[in-house]
């Protein structure tokens, strides 16, 4: 039976179900149990935003491991555990901190299957928070997923709804390759939708057509999907119909759904919260320019932040982010062209 859940609750439920079904699934991260073994304090917190609350009580400290503040150490341990038969879910609070532990992901986990001729599996999920909007400053607000999508061998998942979050998380844990799962911190509690109680999985590499439309294809990820929907409502009043596509995973990428949509609309607006240079928006634009040039009736538009760090001042942070208004303006320009 389906209930309305927040993305936070949907993810918690996914963790519980995958840990129940498979005893090799373990969790690792800083404060995910809630305080390094101090009696009476365990489970007080459940991660820095409380997503893993309740898991240590249910599955015990052998499967829910609080780690020292050494991302290099526990990410390395997680990669090793994955190759040795476990299915670790490692939480790294903010993607912004990934720099300190990049080698185990970039040069180890991502390469094993290829370098060992397919004889090694690395069923690892690394969860991490992305996104601006929390007034958390330049070092806690980035959307660094393009860094990971750049590396062959890593799968990259960016859910936009509670339903997708649960189904994609279950699929990620069951996947035999390393998956980086990017959770937008603003969406944990601001998004809620219908989520089935039973486990289900959404295939990685399958875009979702969020809304069907005829005039413009709008590709967006994570929080930007919601901004695109708001923009599409404004535009509908102006009789401009948007087809919104949420790729859900950017590696693997469902190119076909995007190209089919552009073949129908002839116009493309890509919305992304990541930095613009060598980013996701540029990638989608290049694919469409290369493979669907003759379908295009107007130049491709990108709506991204400027190529600067995320500002700390609230007014500047808001101005920095893409917005429904900026998306609507880009769509109007595309239609006019």
């Amino acid at each position: 039976m389906a209930r309305i859940l927040t993305m936070r609750k949907a993810l918690s439920e996914a963790f519980r179900q995958v840990m129940e079904e498979d005893p090799t699934v373990i969790m690792m991260g800083e404060d995910i149990a809630g305080g390094m073994g101090a009696p009476g304090e365990q489970d007080a917190w459940g991660g820095d935003l409380g997503i893993t609350k309740g898991l240590i009580g249910r599955f015990g400290p052998e499967r829910v491991l609080d780690t020292p503040i050494s991302e290099t150490a526990y990410l390395g341990a997680a990669v090793g555990a994955a190759t040795a038969g476990l299915r670790p879910i490692a939480e790294l609070m903010f993607v912004d901190f990934m720099g300190v532990c990049f080698d185990p992901l970039l040069n180890q986990a991502a390469k094993f299957r290829y370098m060992f001729g397919g004889k090694t599996k690395t069923p690892l999920v690394v969860r991490t928070q992305i996104g601006a909007g929390f007034r958390a400053g330049a070092q806690h607000s980035q959307c660094l997923y393009p860094l990971f999508a750049h590396i062959p061998g890593l799968k990259c998942v960016i859910p936009s709804t509670a339903y997708d979050a649960k189904g994609l998380m279950i699929a990620s844990v069951r996947d035999d390759d390393p998956v980086i799962f990017f959770e937008h911190k603003v969406l944990y509690d601001s998004v809620s939708d219908e989520v089935p109680e039973r486990p289900y999985s959404i295939p990685l590499g399958e875009a979702n057509i969020v809304a069907e439309g005829d005039d413009v294809t709008v590709v967006a990820l994570g929080r930007m999907v919601h901004f695109a929907r708001t923009a599409a409502r404004q535009l509908a009043e102006e009789r401009i119909s948007c087809e919104i596509i949420d790729p859900r995973t950017i590696s693997p990428l469902d190119e076909d759904t995007i190209l089919e949509s552009v073949a129908n609309t002839g116009r493309l607006v890509v919305v992304d919260e990541a930095y613009p240079r060598c980013g996701f928006a540029a990638d989608i634009a290049s694919i469409v320019a290369e493979k669907a040039f003759r379908d295009l009736k107007a130049p491709i538009r990108k709506v991204t932040p400027p190529h600067t760090p995320v500002p700390f001042a609230p007014e500047l942070e808001d101005a920095w982010l893409p917005s429904p208004e900026k998306i609507a303006a880009a769509v109007r320009e595309s239609v006019k062209a």
């Binding site: 339903y163 189904g167 089935p196 039973r198 486990p199 289900y200 999985s201 959404i202």
Partner: peptide, 10 residues
């Protein structure tokens, strides 16, 4: 969408 969601359930 309802039918696709049903088919995705374990």
């Amino acid at each position: 969408e309802q039918l696709i969601r049903m088919k995705r359930i374990d």
